[in-house]
Write a protein that binds this DNA or RNA. Structure first.
Length: 220
DNA sequence: ATCCCGAGGG
DNA sequence: CCCTCTGGAT
């Protein structure tokens, strides 16, 4: 087949290749239920998954339920999550999330986007992670990796994550949204990283506008 | 000095 | 729209 020349065509080809490269497309935040993934994802703001996974064992042991989080001592909670950064905001949000889930949702993590984003510390990206990973609902979480790769790969020029999400949603079938996002993240971490993308070993190099252009591997 | 699975507030 | 919140890795 010829090289895809439209963003929609490239998206299809990219999805096909990423499926081969990252067949499992698993979420790398350690969790065993919806509550744990919600807490872990709140902690993942501007922080690596590896770092989040270092603090969640102690977090889940001390606060195993939304109710336990709702009743947490802020200072003790901050101590546990400190290394993930933004720890005062995150502690406040985690406690607020616990209280809201207990009071407004009978201690059950909600599925609906409109409900999820009312929880403290939960924005659209976090809501989409939950929907796609634990509820098996369509959801494309646009984080820093998904945004960066989408622009480098010529799928969009948008900077606003909500607009990027809308564009990608138009290229990929809803049941594949979650895995497509996960695969972009995996590729973003292993190959197409922000600072020094490894274009020489990239399996998308031949269809990537960023490397096809003479201006080499620059973003934008 | 820049980046990491962002979100809330002004 | 902008700014702020934070530590750790590179």
């Amino acid at each position: 087949m010829g090289k895809p020349r439209t963003p929609a065509g490239r998206a299809k080809e990219i999805a096909t290749r990423l499926e081969v490269l990252y067949p499992k497309a698993e979420c790398e935040l350690t969790h065993s239920n919806a509550y744990e993934l919600l807490a872990a994802t709140i902690l993942s703001a501007q922080c690596t998954d590896v770092r989040v996974n270092m603090v969640t064992p102690a977090l889940f042991a001390k606060y195993p339920t939304p109710l336990a989080l709702a009743e947490a001592n802020p200072t003790e909670l901050e101590t546990i999550i400190r290394s993930t950064g933004f720890y005062q905001n995150k502690a406040k949000n985690l406690i607020g999330m616990g209280r809201n889930v207990v009071d407004r949702f009978a201690s059950v993590i909600p599925h609906e986007m409109e409900d999820l984003v009312t929880l403290p510390g939960v924005g659209r990206k976090t809501a989409n992670v939950l929907r796609s990973v634990v509820f098996d609902l369509p959801g494309l979480a646009v984080d820093t990796h998904v945004g960066r790769l989408s622009r480098r790969l010529g799928l969009t020029t948008e900077e606003d994550p909500v607009k990027v999400e809308r564009v990608l949603n138009g290229f990929i079938d809803p049941p594949e949204w979650g895995r497509f996002g996960l695969r972009l993240i995996l590729h973003g971490r292993r190959v197409c990283d922000a600072k020094k993308p490894k274009c020489g070993i990239c399996e998308l190099e031949d269809i990537c506008p960023a490397t096809l252009m003479p201006s080499k591997s620059k973003e934008k």
